[in-house]
Design a protein around this nucleic acid. Sequence first.
DNA 1: CAATATCACGTGCATATACACGCATATAAA
DNA 2: TTTATATGCGTGTATATGCACGTGATATTG
Lengths: 146, 146
Amino acid sequence: MSTPDPHNSYDICACAQVRKTARLLTQRYDAALRPAGLKVMQFSILSALAKFLDISMTTLAERLVLDRTGLTRNLKPLERDGLIAIRPGKDSRQRIIHLTDLGREVLKQAVPLWQDVQHQIIDEIGETQIDILHSGLANLNHAAQI
Amino acid sequence: MSTPDPHNSYDICACAQVRKTARLLTQRYDAALRPAGLKVMQFSILSALAKFLDISMTTLAERLVLDRTGLTRNLKPLERDGLIAIRPGKDSRQRIIHLTDLGREVLKQAVPLWQDVQHQIIDEIGETQIDILHSGLANLNHAAQI
DNA sequence: CAATATCACGTGCATATACACGCATATAAA
DNA sequence: TTTATATGCGTGTATATGCACGTGATATTG
């Protein structure tokens, strides 16, 4: 990865590497969360809502570093299933997303499942590695956002 | 990330972290490759084909650590645009993917674009960090595949 | 106050991704 | 050789993701 070689972009593309890892982790986490009926992105959204409480679309999208229009569609199944409710804000352009009691309940049920898989992954690669990886990702995020 | 806290899954989910980074990098790489008319996944596929030459669906999917059915659909636009051709193999169940001359040409045009953005990212976070990140991802991949 | 710029958001379109299921071919067992 | 099993692949369905574009509401100018 250090020495880009045009004939070898297959192996060393930083983006492809991270995407591959994201696919693998998504499968693991999705499988772990299945008993709660959640996918990992939905779990992330519910977690964010539990932390930030009522929050507008754009702000939530920024928090999650997720495209705003993608968020709109990600919320659809959650709204359909009654885990969130969407209401107009004071500024009538805004739509405020609210975690319902049912949503909070499902989240509570999902957290131990998430914790299990998170522990498994961390155990398997070691906390030190995870911390290094974490800071590496943070740097990468910073770099990618420029 | 080291100490899972159920009330804080928003910040520390390894999967969410990696997915977020994948989104950021994908935007950067997609933007960089746009002049060649490729998305980063398509670039990955063409690169793999240039390396492995004619290869079956399932084998290519394994190489890319990509779902087989996802690969089928990822290939559609490439075939439509004439960058690849798909032919039956000796085993008539197999479909062999072949990089066309046009595909090779487009890839050749895309490599410098990819190289630029890859360099930018590496420069911004440092080669050492990238190497650490690389090994971290490798470990994570290994762990996630268990 | 009217004209304009800005903001918050949704939709249409295209690709990305995976799972469950089914189909056809090839291989092994009987 | 029939039958059973395994393999290679596609489709249906659902979520994930981003860009270009449009719409309506607020804020800013003139």
